[in-house]
Design a protein around this nucleic acid. Structure first.
Lengths: 193, 193
DNA sequence: GTCTATATCTGGATAGAC
DNA sequence: GTCTATCCAGATATAGAC
């Protein structure tokens, strides 16, 4: 994916900015992170940083996209345990969940850059998860009478809700609830348990 | 609950401010509402309003508490359909869901006034819902092998997640998902269907 | 492209008079 | 308790040097 010629350098730079921002936000949290701090972390001035993203909100949305991109690579092929792995990974970086939750709230405004992102995020997420479920139905790991789209939508909403609450009360064991719900929902043991 | 003597007037006033704020936020949304506008709606100056609540954030949390209070009166005795009734009522006032979602995100900070509110909100909500489920288990409307606390926690998270997503995509039919999940989870028809 | 510097705007917070 | 007036922080925009 390396670029040549014009813009190549700018694109590289942009990527490095996003990685640094990801790191900073993961570490210090969203609320405690201003554009000026992100700029400092990557060795740019505030206006220098904004040159690449136009606005703070667009920068944050770009960070979310970058995180999805990295996450997709890390997680590899979709398997049943992806659900739990995603949650487990997320609990390592509360700052990013915080970012996501704030952007989710901000996305209610159709003109906010996070709006489009969130729509894509859910569409993609439900489609992938439903596909996984369909595969599992073929092997009997999930009952055939379950509607994959309904279950996928429900579990994404459930994960979101658990994450928001976990941010407020970190003693909440998200994995536990996810697995219990899976079992109850499908009537089958959670795969890999 | 009418008060006499000192402070009575102030408390009355505070209540009227909250009702007005509830109305304004429900109508125009959270993002579009500044303290100055809330003050105007109730015929006060900005600083006059802040005198009662100290800060914008505390005012918003007070609005949330007021809404819970009114909601509790409206909904009356807890019955199974409360779940759906709450959701149905909330879709009438997207501005308040927006407020809730923003406060939920802000509550990640332990020093934010919404933090304590949210903890109480969930504790109370789960306790009530679990109590309702226990009652239903006695009549057989819910299988006895379900852990009421787990199911209550899961359904609150599910509702939150669906609401956040509905704000972004209002075509999402929250009632439908809630009912499907209830059926799948309990193996019983949703009460009143 | 990227910097420094500055101007402007908005919204929330605060001080002190009445 | 309420107002007026002021202040301050943060975001954005722009000018112009390098």
């Amino acid at each position: 994916m390396a670029k040549r010629g014009p813009y190549g350098k700018g694109i590289e730079r942009r990527e490095r900015i996003l990685e640094a921002a990801l790191h900073t936000i993961a570490e210090r949290g969203f609320l405690a992170t201003s554009v000026a701090e992100l700029a400092e972390a990557v060795g740019l001035s505030q206006s220098g940083l904004l040159h690449y993203f136009g606005s703070k909100e667009e920068l944050f949305v770009a960070v979310l996209r970058k995180r999805d991109e990295i996450g997709a690579l890390e997680l590899g092929e979709p398997t049943p345990e992806v659900l739990v792995r995603v949650v487990r990974r997320n609990t390592q970086v509360p700052g990013l969940i915080e970012l996501f939750t704030h952007m989710q709230a901000a996305a209610a405004d159709p003109h906010h850059p996070a709006h489009e992102y969130m729509r894509e995020h859910y569409e993609r997420g439900v489609a992938r998860f439903a596909e996984l479920l369909r595969g599992m139905q073929k092997t009997g790991a999930v009952p055939a009478d379950i509607d994959p789209e309904v279950m996928a939508t429900a579990f994404m909403a459930l994960s979101d809700g658990l994450q928001s609450r976990w941010l407020i009360d970190p003693s909440l064991d998200m994995e536990y609830y996810l697995q219990r719900c899976w079992t109850q929902f499908t009537g089958q043991q959670f795969p890999g348990t």
